[in-house]
């Protein structure tokens, strides 16, 4: 990378435009379509995950360097923990377990 000058940061520009498009698409789906709340939530949630992946790969270069593989495993593990915490908390605290 540093030995030859890469002239134009296409990667970043494409990532930026995609991020804007995904953001606007999420707003459009929320306010301008007639889908049910559940469908809307799953759709815009999926768009958010795509946008996070764009940041990770196009801006943060998660696979770069000698430890690229370790980085990816680390992030996947953290996301797994995050999902367990979020969905686990919602499940335990909204299904009446707390009442007993």
């Amino acid at each position: 990378m540093s030995t030859h000058k890469s002239s134009f940061p296409w990667n970043h520009l494409v990532g930026f435009i995609l991020s804007i498009a995904l953001t606007l698409l999420a707003v459009f789906i929320k306010f301008k379509t007639d889908f049910s709340d559940t469908v809307i939530l799953w759709t815009i949630g999926t768009l958010a995950i795509f946008q996070a992946l764009i940041q990770l790969f196009m801006f943060m270069h998660v696979t770069e360097g000698n430890e690229g593989k370790i980085n990816v495993i680390n992030i996947i593990y953290s996301v797994f923990l995050a999902l367990v915490i979020v969905f686990g908390s919602i499940w335990v605290l909204t299904t009446g377990h707390a009442a007993h």
Binding site: N74, Y77, S78, L81, A82
Partner: peptide, 15 residues
Amino acid sequence: LGFWVFLGAEIVLFS
């Protein structure tokens, strides 16, 4: 690498 591990911890914090 260490900072990526820290960001992993940040993901858990925000979760």
